[in-house]
Design a protein around this nucleic acid. Structure first.
Lengths: 334, 334
DNA sequence: GCCCAGCGTGCAACCGGTTGCACAAAATTG
DNA sequence: CAATTTTGTGCAACCGGTTGCACGCTGGGC
């Protein structure tokens, strides 16, 4: 059995309270007993049981990290940054993989049973209502990469997807492309809808530019490749805005293996600027999403909510920008 | 405040014990009271506090999932499979990112403070002594993707890296290559050492075949590309066995952008068979590592250890096989 | 109608900590 | 040096559950 308070108290010749206090920040203990206790604790290898103390303090330092996309490599970067950032602040991520619908219904109960101090929903595909259910249950929640609305129910940190859609359209139009297409991620995802909306908005107000759109089944390589294959069987547009980098890379692969050239025959712009987009053999022109900022801001926000759970919900949006690589014709070629 | 046992007991008109027993498998409660309790619990939205019960039962259903590689996309697949598999068994993964040395020293304490029921160390680069420290502290541990030794201190699930090295060498030799090279991951990683050992063993016993080797700094795209660039500045070998797929893909990128052709000028074989290796624009010939089997076996093992923490340590090794794609000359061309 | 087995229940102690409160010891003040 | 404040400590109750034990009740066998 593990070493407990009592063991240390006994060895140090003090009460259990004294031991507890030596291990609590700001509690009143004399230097003398603190030393005694620390000595005894060190000899026994004592560590306070975080779970037991959570019972009285009401704090577990556990943060639920919920995601539903374990097939998009950008999420490895996301997990890396989240886990590092949380760890630095003494918080522990309890990971929840929502691969199935039924997991989704369970997630709230599960995280409540473990009394997590807060939850980060890292997904651009889960509906806002999902994040809201945590808030309704009184669990501090931040929806990272979520939808920005004018009257948010929960804290949202991410980008303005509508604006990204506009940016993509403007960029393609500037380069001289006139037959544009949007190849989105899952149709139901808010990120897909918003990106499409912004994209179409610009095209509608630009004479002489046409637009089509379609959707891939998920944010994954295979879905992107399959969807592009399907499009190539007909008459594809000149230039595509793909809902996401991994989708773009799948599409890129389909275009190249069909014998067409990128960007000469088909041009592509992605969104995210994941590590891989910069790889020499991919060289995807894409819209950079500042995931570092999004994640550190999300963490700051969830930390702030630990002290003030009823903090008024806010949306934090970070600007994106185009990263020029090799899948669009240079502007000069106009 | 959340609903507790007491609230439910009060409402159902029974003792707290009765409520507790209704929610414990196999406890003795009459059908009548169980119904009453369930009704009251449903009305109040009661969920037992998993952490509180862990105090007496000694079980948290928390499993530490420790890794140090958040830059190799294969680990996204690994996390996906682990989280799904653990969730299916009612276990929750507490994720630990060992990006820094100091995290490593803390990890054991941290996971003990949270009384995890077991730990999975998912890494081929952490030293065996790391996993052993958990065992020494009485925490059930499985080292997935770890080194297989003849006298293991802890449970190891993975592949025989030495045999993979042999397999790579045999494959390259069969294809007619004579100037072989090993481009490993971090030199200190046991997986690197073992793969090299097997590789050299076969070459030593095959007359007329030469061998060189070098190491990339980490298992990552950039490290692979940089190392291959360095090699291309000199006189590169005909055929490379790269320590890992992501390394191979980096190397592939360096070869192609230097103007050389794959496999005509430089041939490559990787290891892992990650999703990306099969992408059309990569098409890496590689040795398949059965990660699904490794992970589900790791989970089974950690589950088995919950009941029998002193289970005698075993090594579970799964066979690998070559997956033919486009980075080696076909055997027929001999 | 009596005896005993067995089931179901509640009491109370316990898991490993925290914390309000009362009180003793030490430090400060005049 | 007495009076007063400050500081430190231990007691005991509590957090939200679990569980050994004793006891009451029911039902079956004779």
């Amino acid at each position: 059995m593990a070493i407990t308070l009592k063991d240390v108290a006994l060895r140090a010749g003090v009460s259990r309270s004294a031991v507890s206090r030596t291990f609590t920040e700001g509690a009143s203990v004399s230097e003398k007993t603190r030393k005694k206790v620390q000595k005894a604790a060190a000899e026994l290898g004592y560590r306070p049981n975080a779970l037991a103390s959570s019972l009285t303090t009401g704090r577990t330092k556990l943060i639920g990290l919920v995601s539903d996309n374990f097939h998009n490599p950008i999420f490895l970067e996301v997990f890396d940054l989240f886990t590092k950032g949380l760890q630095e602040r003494g918080l522990r991520p309890l990971l929840v993989n929502l691969s199935q619908q039924k997991d989704r219904d369970q997630a709230l109960h599960l995280l409540r049973q473990y009394s997590v101090d807060g939850v980060i929903v890292a997904s651009s595909t889960l509906p806002p209502s999902f994040a809201k259910s945590f808030r309704d249950a009184g669990v501090p929640v931040v929806n990272s990469f979520g939808r920005h609305t004018t009257s948010p129910d929960v804290h949202v940190v991410g980008i303005d997807n509508v604006e990204c859609g506009r940016m993509a359209a403007r960029t393609l139009i500037e380069r001289g492309y006139r037959e544009l297409a949007f190849m989105g991620g899952p149709e139901a995802a808010t990120s897909t809808q918003d990106r499409l909306a912004g994209f179409r908005e610009i095209i509608r107000e630009t004479p002489g530019v046409s637009q089509t759109h379609s959707f891939a089944e998920s944010y994954s390589f295979d879905a992107g490749r399959d969807e592009m294959k399907r499009l190539l069987a007909g008459t594809p547009a000149q230039a595509f805005f793909c809902g996401d980098d991994v989708l773009s890379i799948g599409a890129l692969s389909a275009v190249r293996s069909s014998g067409l050239r990128v960007p000469e025959d088909v041009a592509l712009i992605g969104l995210n600027d994941m590590e891989m987009a910069g790889w020499d053999n991919i060289a995807l022109t894409t819209i950079h999403q500042p995931i570092q900022q999004i994640i550190s801001s999300s963490i700051e926000l969830v930390v702030a909510m630990l002290d003030d759970p009823d903090r008024y919900p806010e949306a934090r949006l970070f600007p994106c920008h185009v990263v020029e690589r090799a899948t669009l014709q240079p502007a000069a070629s106009l």
